[in-house]
């Protein structure tokens, strides 16, 4: 497999490399037609999914967001209430405000720390020595397991009042709290669980580091640059597209976290709404209170927020993401 790094662009097609015979054939009307039909046949499951599972539900969700729909109502008594759901959300729903704040704190603290950990470990692992593969595996494994219910259960036990974390702290004479049950710290335990899963961005950083030409470091050290300056002036610029890719991906992922908060708070975002992530609030409104119209409005606000965030990230990327070919993108 042509191992492209995450940031590297889509593998190009080879239009110029077709053999003359094929080009001739391609020119003939019937062959082209046949390929055209075949294209749609190959795409048909995906097209069906795009319509049935994605596009139509999206439009339906937009419509429902202007109604008071609940799953018990028949289509006849769905009432169009205009912007009421949206107005309520922004003027008269403390839980909404709370969930936005919780989600922002979670993502803004967790993502940078996770990426910093991923980069630091990737730099340490970016040398060929015996056992490096083992370490890479060790650090990567949590990102496969971290989203599971099993790990959420482990977390709530580790950070319980008599859990292993407090046991460790007691060596230093510190008496810890019941972290998962304390409104001030419960979100912190979720953030730590998020950081613990830095393996996936780490592997992407490692792939990016492999692409940095060794000559650049040689030139820099000939010029007397210290390792610290080499890091800031060679590694970071060369790695910035990969960093950007990780940042976008992890931010979007961070905003969508659900399982661990749900399991640790037993489905209610507690204690005192301190772990009420936006997705959890959406779930509660839609599927435990069955305010599905309101939940749809929440979902559309979420979609717009993530869209805006992505645009913002991309527009700041212009200023700090360095592409080796000097092209402005």
């Amino acid at each position: 497999m042509a191992l492209t790094t995450a940031s590297a662009q889509v593998v190009p097609e080879h239009p110029g490399r077709r053999s003359p015979a094929a080009r001739k054939r391609r020119g003939s009307g019937s062959g082209r037609h046949r390929e055209g039909v075949a294209g749609y046949v190959f795409l048909s499951p995906w097209l069906l999914g795009l319509m049935g599972i994605t596009a139509i539900p999206m439009l339906l969700s937009l419509y429902l967001s202007f109604t008071d729909y609940s799953v018990f109502s028949t289509w006849e008594d769905v009432e169009w209430i205009g912007l009421e759901n949206y107005v309520t959300m922004f003027t008269n729903d403390p839980s909404f405000v709370r969930s936005v704040l919780v989600t922002l704190v979670y993502a803004l603290v967790m993502v940078p720390l996770k990426l910093a950990a991923a980069l630091a470990v990737a730099l340490l692992l970016n040398r060929a020595w015996r056992g490096v593969g083992l370490f890479r595996g060790l650090f990567y494994l949590p990102s496969l397991l971290g989203g599971s219910v099993a790990l959420a259960l482990v977390w709530s036990a580790l950070f319980a009042g008599d859990g292993a974390v407090n046991e460790f702290l007691s060596f230093f004479g510190i008496t810890g709290k019941a972290w998962v049950n304390d409104p001030d710290y419960a979100l912190g335990t979720l953030i730590i669980l998020g950081i613990w899963q830095f393996g996936a961005p780490m592997v992407i950083f490692l792939a990016g580091l492999k692409q940095v030409p060794v000559e650049l470091y040689e030139a820099a050290s000939v010029d007397g640059a210290s390792p610290w300056r080499q890091f800031w002036h060679v590694t970071m610029p060369m790695l910035s597209p990969v960093l950007f890719f990780n940042l976008v991906l992890e931010t979007i992922r961070g905003f969508q976290s659900f399982t661990s908060a749900f399991v640790i708070s037993n489905g209610n975002g507690g204690p005192v709404d301190s772990t009420l992530l936006y997705t959890l609030y959406l779930y509660k409104r839609g599927f435990t209170e069955f305010d599905m119209g309101y939940a749809s409005a929440l979902a559309w606000v979420f979609l717009l927020a993530i869209g805006i965030l992505t645009v913002v990230l991309f527009s700041t990327g212009r200023f700090w993401v360095h592409y080796a070919d000097g092209e402005d993108r």
Binding site: E35, G36, G39, L47, P57, S61, Q256, T279, A299
Partner: peptide, 29 residues
Amino acid sequence: LRFTGRRLFFALMLGTMMLPGHVLLVPQY
């Protein structure tokens, strides 16, 4: 394969990668 609309569909496909699944929860349900 080459067919009309391929580029558009490809762009749509990439777009759905970024789409948060939560928007689809209620209507799919």
